[in-house]
């Protein structure tokens, strides 16, 4: 059952990711990104990371993709002719494809990682990622400093966005 779900979700994620890359319409690409993120959230749920699955849907699919759609519609960058790919771009893409395929083939061929067994959870005990208490313990002890730093980062990003939009509004008024 879990296997079937894994293949279903991974197929769905990859197909919609291809949709993001090849779609000519930017709104369609954003919606494909949304579906792809939902697929990844399903995979997270299969990996017993229920909190992260919920967060991914809320933060990414909810906030980020909505922001993308908002900006796409605000700028109105629909349609337009897509210039043919340059030769250097095509060559770089091919080389990148070759390197990545070689890496994946090495990973699949070695199968050293495949022997890693999934840690056996004792009967009745929830897997480690499914207990919210563990998250709280880690975030407030081991990772307390990073949490503070991330809080400052969010504050700085917010102020940066305000400054960016204010500056250009002033220039337009001139």
């Amino acid at each position: 059952m879990a296997n079937a779900l894994f293949y279903l979700f991974s197929f769905f994620t990859l197909i919609t990711a291809v949709g993001v890359v090849v779609n000519k319409n930017t709104v369609n690409a954003a919606l494909c990104l949304l579906l792809s993120l939902v697929g990844v959230a399903g995979l997270f749920a299969l990996l017993d990371a229920y909190l992260l699955a919920a967060l991914l849907v809320l933060v990414y699919a909810g906030a980020v993709v909505a922001l993308f759609l908002f900006i796409v519609m605000l700028l109105d960058v629909q349609g337009g002719v897509r210039a043919p790919f340059q030769r250097t771009t095509a060559v770089a893409g091919t080389v990148g494809l070759a390197v990545l395929v070689a890496g994946l083939a090495a990973l699949a061929g070695r199968s050293g990682l495949a022997s890693t067994p999934a840690p056996a959870t004792a009967a009745g005990a929830a897997p480690v990622g499914a207990v919210l208490k563990h998250y709280a313990e880690m975030l407030f002890t081991t990772y307390l400093l990073p949490v503070q730093v991330v809080g400052f980062l969010l504050l700085i990003a917010m102020q940066g966005v305000i400054v960016l939009s204010r500056k250009f509004a002033a220039e337009d008024a001139k």
């Binding site: 990859l14 890496g103 495949a114």
Partner: peptide
């Protein structure tokens, strides 16, 4: 579906 499959999927993505 072991670690290998997840890593390959991640690499493809």
């Amino acid at each position: 579906a072991g670690l290998n499959e997840y890593l390959i999927l991640s690499g493809l993505l």
